[in-house]
Design a protein around this nucleic acid. Sequence first.
DNA 1: TGAATATCTGAACGATTGTTCATATGTTAG
DNA 2: CTAACATATGAACAATCGTTCAGATATTCA
Lengths: 99, 99
Amino acid sequence: MAENRNVKEDELYDLAELFKAFGDSTRIRILFALFEKDYAVNDLAEHLNMTQSAISHQLKILKRFKLVGNSREGKSRIYFLADDHVRTIISMGIEHIEE
Amino acid sequence: MAENRNVKEDELYDLAELFKAFGDSTRIRILFALFEKDYAVNDLAEHLNMTQSAISHQLKILKRFKLVGNSREGKSRIYFLADDHVRTIISMGIEHIEE
DNA sequence: TGAATATCTGAACGATTGTTCATATGTTAG
DNA sequence: CTAACATATGAACAATCGTTCAGATATTCA
């Protein structure tokens, strides 16, 4: 039981890191864009009016937390939302701020 | 429709701010402690092994985003989780990292 | 192979953030 | 009212973070 609590306690640090990944406007805008459709890096940069480099840096973080995945498509690399978990978390967040 | 999109676009900044509130280990530990029971500020500080000041600063942030509420109880102020939304978001997050 | 295109990456800089320290505010009991 | 307790707050400092810039890596096609 005390053991179980410690496991949870350790997990909380990872949890904070996970939410930190959601907690940046650029990354949220990326995630929301991918909510609607898949994007190549350049298209994402254009769509969000940011440099390709900035987007790439943030995609790397999102990938580290398994919030997005990607696959090669010719010269481009197509990014997509990792799973419905991500969709649910974003949806819950939107519900909260819309209250 | 274009109008609707802009509304969403603006909301995304608030959404990032909301997740930022979850994205700190101290605040997550506070939220998780309150997941289990209500706490006065001092008890929370003791429970988490942190100064009262640090906890108070973070509680202020959590309150700003309506993640916690409080009520006076004699000399103390008892903090509690604002609603089930918060519980759900935390639960979803834990599920994600446990995958 | 070499040019063109697409993406990634490291260093650096400015901005933001969490904690500490000292102190202020608020509440209760004597 | 005053002492004691509980919480809140402002300033300051160190650490973390996101963007830019320059250049590296990877893939395609002629």
